[in-house]
Design a protein around this nucleic acid. Sequence first.
RNA 1: CGGGGUGUAGCGCAGUCCGGUUAGCGCGCUUCGUUCGGGACGAAGAGGCCGGAGGUUCGAAUCCUCUCACCCCGACCA
Length: 583
Amino acid sequence: MRLSKLVGHRYKERPGEAVLDSHAFLLRGAYARQVANGIYSLLPPGLRVARKIEGIIREEMDRIGGQEVLMPVVMPRELWEESGRYDAVGSELLRFQDRTGHDMVLGMTHEEAVVHLCRHEINSYAQLPFMVYQIQTKFRDEPRSRGGLIRVREFTMKDAYSFHASQEDLERYYMECYRAYQRIFARVGLPEVVAVLSDTGMMGGKVAHEFILLTEAGEDTIVTCESCGYLANQEVATGRMQGYPEEPLPLEKVHTPDKKTIEEVAAFLGIEPRQTAKVVFYDTDEAGKLVVLLIRGDVEVNEMKLAKVIRAMPVPADEAKIAAAGSVAGFASPMGLDPKHCRIVVDQTIAGSGNLVCGANEHDYHFKNFNLARDLPGMDMVDVAQVREGDGCPQCSGALTLKRGVEVGNIFQLGIKYTEAMGMTFDDEAGNVRTPIMGCYGIGVGRLVSSIMEVRRDEYGPKWPLSVAPWQVHLNALRLNVEEVNTTAERLYTELQDAGVEVVYDDRDERPGVQFADADLIGIPIRLIVSERNLKNSQIEFKRRDTGESGVIPLEGAVQTVRDWIDVALAAINTTAEDISAS
RNA sequence: CGGGGUGUAGCGCAGUCCGGUUAGCGCGCUUCGUUCGGGACGAAGAGGCCGGAGGUUCGAAUCCUCUCACCCCGACCA
């Protein structure tokens, strides 16, 4: 590629809308341009990185027996009604009508499509297991996209789906895929990506992992334990919270005029928030009952964890609902509520502390010295507490820390949610009709482009790993009006290409500073510089953006030298990938 | 959906409060010349429906109403 002809202009000023450095480079380096909120066009460098990533994904998917297919972006409403998700999924599923008024959706994920595709192609256990995957555009009408390509509405995703005759086989394959993912992330230059336990959300299923790149640019909160390596998304993380047991004192009603919040009550009574119990109302559980959650006052509710307990999405209840249940907002008590109309859920933090202050179900009154075992006996404990920095690790004696991360991939043990709902079956060896068990596995391609840029960069631009760099070599010629410089650079450009090297040649008659600044922004790992100065010694200069090395090499044999560097660097990346997935 | 912010040349911004010739500045772009190892210098140019619609006014980038888009925080999110 001749830089003089590369479409897309680079500029030096940071765009106003960029918050992340990777977002600024994405625009400054002419990798992508925003078309609308969360919708981007890719320019050649951006697309080339994406294609490199896709190529690595394809190799690793094929290696674990994947077969590439392509499913549609647009699907009819009926397909999504078969699984129940047409109604279950919110407005992030873009619904529209075609010319005839038929309801259609834009695919945000392809479980329905893949079951539709496979259910009539498979009828025997002998055809299982198998995995199909695609690299396809997805659309999710996110309420809030941000961060360049980190979180967008339209994006390219690799999504894979496996089908199994047994749970054991799914679990075996799940681990195969897990290792394939480790290789993929290592090969695209992110060996530090970690797998964490995650929530299954709208996908259903039981076991799921997210592959997380730890970086402050991320918007997922990850709970880790430095001493034992525990890793989990905060949405599912558990922790040991310190308890404050006390010898029970008699229940005592106290006047607390206008003190509604935990902070107000604690301050009024001169106690810590941890010495209170708060009641939070949600509308409603799966049976339609008002949920009355009792949790220690200083602890936040993790609504993802609560959702699993009440098997419904927790929606905070309004005051009318609370009053109808016989309680008083701001002064709510778990005691004296009618279990016919509400479901009392008690978080385990309540059991660990004694003599708590809670509401009295009466305006301007609270109780002191609430003790669960005495005052509300026989309750089952649940864990719906939001883990905090410093809480005890659930696996060892260490303390938990919170970090930020970007979810670059995920894997789910889906189960039979879709195959059962959509009537996919096979005959087992005994002739019984059975339902295949599914797994699904996603990787965000564009998100990876931005994520790599976010963690592999300096102040001047990205430092692309060789395996995903838009080109492998960046060739500069200083002073094109010097005949020898011009002819040497042209010859190197041709010979490098003949040697199979992907090279971008800055054939513009620009000053060195301009050329170097552009080279940094394009971020190619190997830079070659042809100049009058070094040609006097029959040498050319090199600068490795990936390793930081620089120096001169003989012009004679330079192409082979560079070819060898590339081969060595790629081999090293692949070796790292194998080591990580084998460990 | 709630709160906040911004829309002026390809990019970054000033001008808006307090209405008044031809709407500026830097970068980038074109031409010429001088330069040439980390974003050079001089000269001459091109480039604007001041987000859109309506209104107030002799006169609107500026004031009013409505609207659209984008950004940030929150809610939401495989």
